[in-house]
Structure formats: structure tokens, C-alpha cells
Write a protein that binds this DNA or RNA. Structure first.
Lengths: 258, 258
DNA sequence: GGGCATCATTTGGGATACAATTTTGGACAC
DNA sequence: GTGTCCAAAATTGTATCCCAAATGATGCCC
């Protein structure tokens, strides 16, 4: 309880165990017994039980016989698979959404998200708080979409699969944070958000689905590609002024080269 | 414990609660407290906790504020949505599978499943044991596909979503069981299995995915359509003889036109 | 009489005690 | 030497107990 994060302990344990699986503290094949991990993490069996079940549902553990669970091999491409599954599900969501139409309140909420994202690019320079603010807006945008698609089962499936890739990325991609490529990556993500929302409004379910499926990979492939493109280049940005609608939110940037 | 099913009580409670949600024993909006449902079902809070969390992950419950969970409205179209989600995920699985190819052991296993399915149609007349046998083979076929796609996360997501539509169907579709339409429905399902396997072997991921997505709806739409087609018609089936390969498992029907 | 604060009750989260089951180790017999 | 059986240890499943937090009600003060 001396930890800074004041979550509900059960989530803390879940995140901690997922992290330990991903960073190799619990190597593949390790048998996780409830009592063992309980005293290992300093809590009782109750949160451990919940975490183990959740991790098994997320595909990180599988039962070894009738006794206990074992850590599964998590390969680098598994993160891509997880992202792809998430993209497939979210793509299905926006396709449905384009078919049934946006309710006014939802439409307004989504617009506000994107406007705030655009304001972020226009008014603030990149930094840790920038990334944090964008992350919050990003989560808001996506979860609004999930809730709007009017299918509790689909929403649950997406929510289920949302933590997995995030956990993987946080565990693997933590060290490298180049501000310039991050900025461009987020700008691409924001632009994809705009395309998706416009496609939904136009009732173009196919396009919304395709872009959303691609959008799922913005965490990995795009960062890589932008890094290659910007390698050794001088990049400058200026805040975009006069942003009357969402089409104008294409920023120009200024910064020092790495 | 006087029940016939000797499962691990936790699963029994989960199935029981899901059933009660679906058949209206727990109407939408009902607040499910751990203690209340515990004494309602005659067990302690422990299995209830697990069941409530699982049902929330499946999309049947959502938290009402910070206190407790409430039964969500389960509309008839939600079953279709759940089936669609499952179809999307399984479609993704077979698409991947067509890309990476079938390992020999998996290929043989799938072949055996389909051969046994075909034998079923050839050697046995329709009845309860027929449906049960087919159901077993169907589950075997699908879970073999899931395991083969080499993505633990995807497999977990599919397994997660597999119980939901089944539970819904068992709860809703129990009364109507017309043997002739059931026979044809299973025959269509079997044929789709064959098409999917062949598409995977040919590396045609797009076709495998499309057919699998359609196959997800074989439980509902097809039964309905076959029922309409066969309405009032006399249907007789003869066992197909001389089935040397899987192409021959197409039954012949004879009857009067509507 | 209304608003706010405080207290009680409800409820979920966590810990622990208990039961059932399975695995594993060893010993004994063949 | 090997196989089988029994017992003990380990581990999960289940029940109960405690506690913290939230919600609703009641009373007091303004």
C-alpha cells in the first residue's frame, strides 16, 4: 500500500503479473501456484486468483493438467497478433456504427475529443504531458466508440483485449522514446481518428473498418517507419493556426534533430 | 450436488446465472449482489464472485456506479451480435492459418474430424445422439482450428466468446427442434467446414475468412431459412453410399414442392 | 424548513480457515 | 528390478470472517 498507484489492488496485481510475464521475471513454463505467487507478491490468494483467471483469459497462461497454470511463451509477434485482434474487433465496431448511425450526443462527444486532440497539436509543444493528454483523449475517443456501437458483447470483447497489447507495449517499448517520431506518430493516429469518424458519418462502414484495422498498428509499425524516415533529418514545426474544422488539423513542426 | 453434472461448481454457477439472465429469471436492471445471489443459489460468495466477474467480461453485466453489478438488457439481436463477434474472431483465425499453412498433424486431425462428420451423415439417421455426436465433432473441429492458429491471445479471445452465443442459443432455441431442418442445417454446417478446410489448404485466406464469418450464423439464420423452405414438404433422406472422399458427403433429398 | 454533517447499514475487496482432490514419493510385494 | 498401492504433501476449490468504502437515512444546526 506504499505504492503511488491507488487502484483496486486486484488490478495492480494483474498488471504486475502481466508485466512479470512479459519482462521475463516469470519465464515461459513457470508454474504459477496461487499460494506461491501470493506470498511472492505479498498479498493473499484472493487477488491472485482473480489475476490468474484474467491472465488465462488473456492468453498468457494455460492450465497444466488439472493442477495449476503455467506461463505461456510470449513471442514478439504475439504483440502484433494481439493488436490485430483488437483491430479486428474495433473495426467490426465502427463498421456496425457506420451502419446504424451516430446518435447526436455520441457525435458531439467524438467531435469534442477530436477537437481537443487538434488543440493539443496546435497549442502545446511535445513533451511528457503532451503524450499523457493525448493518451487520455485517445482512450476517451475509443471507449466512446465502443460504448456507442450498441453491442454489449462486442464492447466487452474489445475491453477484454484492450489491456493486453497496452501491457505488452508498456513492457517492451518503454526504453525508446524519441520525441520527434512520437509526435509524428500521434499526429498520424489523430488523423486516422478523423478519417474514421468521417467515414462513420458518411455511412462508409467498409472504409471505417479498414482504417480502424490499420489504426491498431499505429503503436508499432508507424513509430518504426517514422523513425527511419526522420533518421538524421532536421524537422521543424509551427502551430497550425486558423483551425475552423477538423480538416485543418495538420500541424507543422519545429524541433532539433536527435 | 444432487445434480447430474459433476463439474467444478464454479462453472455450474456461471452457467446457471447466465441461464437465469437469458431466460428472464433475473430481469434486466436487476442488481446482483454477491451475498444475495450467494444465498439465492445456495453457495458461498466465492463462486459467485468468479461468476459475476466472468459475466461482466462476457457483457451481460455492468457496474451500476461504484456499487454492485446490474443485469444488462439482452435483446434478441444481441445473440446475432455475439455470433458475429465470434465469426469475426474465428475468421481472423482461419485467415492467419491459411497464411502460415497447416502443420501435418493438424491437417490430419482436421481431416479426421470431417471424415467422421461425413460418416455420421452416411451411416446414422438423425436423432438426439446424432446431434450430440455432431456437436462433439463440431467442437473438436473448431477448437483444433483455434489451437492451430498459433496465437494464444486470439485463441483466448475466441474461447472467451464461444460460451456466450451457445448459452444464448440453449436458452432461447430450446423448444423448437424440427428434425428435418436440423439435419439439413448440420449438413450445411458440415459442408462449410469442408469449404473452410479446403480454402485454408489452398492458402486462400480471404475465402476461408468469409466462409467462417458466414458459418457463425449457421445456428440461427440457416435453421430459419431451411424451415421456411421445407415448410409443409415431405423430406426423406437416404444415406450416401460410396463416399471415397469428402466431396461425396452431399445428401440427396426427395420431396414434394411447397 | 432546508441544508449539511454524521452515523449506520449495505456491499464489495481481501484474508484466512477448511475441504476435496490430485500428484508424487516411497515402500512393499511379486 | 519393476509395478502397484498407500500415504503424505501440495494445490486448488469453497466457505467464512474482517475491513474499508460508499450510500442512504436521520438528526442537528442555521
Amino acid at each position: 500500500m506504499t505504492d503511488m498507484s491507488e487502484q483496486t489492488a486486484q488490478e495492480r496485481i494483474l498488471a504486475e503479473m502481466r508485466m512479470r510475464i512479459l519482462d521475463g521475471t516469470y519465464p515461459p513454463g513457470t508454474r504459477l501456484t496461487e499460494l506461491g505467487t501470493a506470498e511472492d507478491l505479498g498479498v493473499s490468494r484472493t487477488p491472485i486468483r482473480a489475476a490468474i483467471r484474467a491472465l488465462a483469459k488473456e492468453g498468457f497462461l494455460d492450465r497444466s493438467g488439472a493442477r495449476g497454470y503455467a506461463v505461456r511463451q510470449v513471442r514478439p509477434e504475439d504483440m502484433r497478433h494481439a493488436l490485430q485482434v483488437r483491430g479486428v474487433l474495433e473495426g467490426e465496431a465502427v463498421r456496425r456504427l457506420a451502419g446504424i448511425g451516430l446518435k447526436p450526443t455520441i457525435d458531439r462527444k467524438l467531435s469534442e475529443c477530436l477537437e481537443e486532440e487538434a488543440r493539443l497539436f496546435q497549442e502545446h509543444s511535445f513533451g511528457p504531458d503532451f503524450a499523457a493528454a493525448y493518451n487520455r483523449l485517445n482512450t476517451e475517443f475509443h471507449s466512446t466508440l465502443h460504448r456507442a456501437c450498441d453491442s454489449p458483447q462486442l464492447e466487452a470483447a474489445i475491453r477484454q483485449m484492450s489491456n493486453v497489447p497496452s501491457g505488452m507495449i508498456h513492457a517492451i517499448k518503454a526504453p525508446e522514446k524519441e520525441s520527434s517520431q512520437e509526435y509524428v506518430r500521434l499526429l498520424i493516429a489523430h488523423t486516422q481518428h478523423q478519417v474514421i469518424l468521417r467515414a462513420i458519418r458518411n455511412g462508409d462502414g467498409v472504409r471505417a473498418e479498414e482504417v480502424m484495422r490499420e489504426h491498431a498498428f499505429v503503436r508499432i509499425d508507424y513509430a518504426e517507419l517514422v523513425a527511419e524516415t526522420l533518421a538524421g533529418a532536421q524537422v521543424t514545426t509551427t502551430s497550425a493556426k486558423d483551425a475552423s474544422d477538423d480538416r485543418s488539423a495538420v500541424g507543422k513542426r519545429r524541433g532539433s534533430s536527435p
